[in-house]
Design a protein around this nucleic acid. Structure first.
Length: 109
DNA sequence: CCCCTGACGACGC
DNA sequence: AGCGTCGCCAGGG
């Protein structure tokens, strides 16, 4: 059985729309502990085998694909994002702000 | 039970 | 401006 934070992170990630991305920090903040961004990354790492979770839509606050090496194929993250219309150059999302989806704004607590 | 690790981020120096 | 440190939460040894 997983703890609440773990489950909550997964829930929020599932809600990220196609073509949008969010950050570890935003998710942590949405869950009420803004300083737990690190744990968000940790959760996704544990879920890397669960392909039903769009973990490729979560990047760090600079729009960098810091987690790409944890996928089976390091290029998976970028190719998925580009399929959805998100351009990636040098492991960084181009025009990050226009693709940024903030659960704190988009979701009602 | 204590210590370490980690896809982060804010702050201090 | 860049680097070091610390906080946070869970899990593993």
């Amino acid at each position: 059985m997983q703890s609440n934070f773990f489950v909550d992170v997964v829930d929020v990630v599932r809600l990220i729309p196609r073509g949008k991305v969010t950050t570890y920090g935003s998710i942590a903040k949405y869950l009420g502990s803004s300083r737990s961004s690190r744990t968000v990354g940790w959760v996704l790492n544990k879920q890397v085998l669960d392909t039903t979770i769009p973990a490729h839509r979560v990047v760090n606050r600079q729009g960098i694909l810091t987690g790409k090496n944890y996928f089976k194929d390091p290029l998976f993250m970028q190719s998925e994002l580009e399929k959805e219309g998100v351009k990636v150059v040098n492991d960084q999302i181009v025009d990050f702000n226009t693709h940024f989806w903030d659960p704190n704004k988009e979701l009602t607590i």
